[in-house]
């Protein structure tokens, strides 16, 4: 290999970008075209395919799970009407037990079924173990749900804190990333500035399940201590130790 080829190989390692670094190159090579198409197809599938909710329920058993649906009846409506993905079907509202609870955990498909299928159940199980000392509501599984659905669910359950785990918008390189949003005193219309977010939870160089559990646990403990989430609660989980 020439010195230049070696230099180009070294440069490609510096970024996840699809670098070509080929002087005098013409049309993109077929291998790059097909690789791109495979990545895009995976992202599209993550968005359009349904979550295996039975699998998620099995993964968190024996903890109780309640399956509900947002007011967005289909994937197309979900994408066109962000407002409906934030509200629960009225009939489902009545199926939620009235607390009070310290914490409610909500799992929503969001924009990635892959994210929920791959890591949703395992993350909930790890969190339930971490919160064994708290009064946690039955886990609520929401079909066609956005982050904001946690506000209505949390309020109906009478939860002091609601944690929403949701599939993030897939990129070309990562299609199964989960996001976690923590909100205190949830109610319909809560602004995003009142939430803390832990994003990029996935196994492809993202936040591992163990690290995500630690971060979320830290945020929950300090949210309870300080009585606030959002801009008033800075994530210092990397430096400040967990409360007892």
């Amino acid at each position: 290999m020439s010195e230049l080829e070696e230099a180009f190989r070294a440069l490609k390692r510096l970024t996840p970008s699809r670098l070509r670094l080929e002087p005098g190159a013409g049309a993109a090579p077929l291998s790059a075209v097909l690789d791109f198409q495979a990545s895009h197809a995976s992202a599209r599938d993550a968005i359009t395919m349904p979550v295996d909710w039975a699998g998620v329920t099995r993964a968190i058993a024996p903890a109780e799970a309640i399956a509900v649906h947002s007011r967005a009846d289909s994937r197309e409506v979900y994408i066109r009407r962000p407002d409906l993905g934030r509200r629960l079907r009225e009939a489902d509202l009545a199926r939620l037990p009235k607390g009070p609870f310290d914490l409610a955990i909500v799992v929503a498909d969001g924009l990635s079924a892959h994210a929920v299928n791959d890591n949703g159940g395992a993350l909930v199980a790890a969190l339930l173990a971490a919160f064994a000392d708290l009064n946690v509501a039955p886990v609520v599984l929401v079909e066609q749900g956005r982050v904001g659905i946690g506000d209505e669910v949390g309020a109906a359950l009478g939860a002091d804190l609601v944690l929403v785990l949701v599939g993030e918008r897939p990129g070309l390189s990562v299609t199964n990333s989960l996001g976690a949003y923590l909100t205190r005193s949830p109610k319909v219309g809560t602004p995003d500035s009142a939430r803390n977010c832990v994003s990029n939870i996935h196994g492809k160089g993202g936040l591992s399940l163990a690290d995500a559990t630690h971060k979320i646990n830290w945020l929950v403990r300090y949210a309870r201590k300080l009585g606030v989430t959002g801009v008033g609660l800075k994530d210092l989980s990397d430096t400040v130790p967990l409360l007892d």
Partner: peptide, 22 residues
């Protein structure tokens, strides 16, 4: 234009350098 149409920071697809040349 971005490398290979894939913006790895903003997670969306724009044109590739090859597209501009085309």
């Amino acid at each position: 234009c971005v490398p290979g149409s894939d913006d790895v920071m903003l997670s969306y697809q724009s044109l590739a350098f090859e597209d501009a040349r085309w």
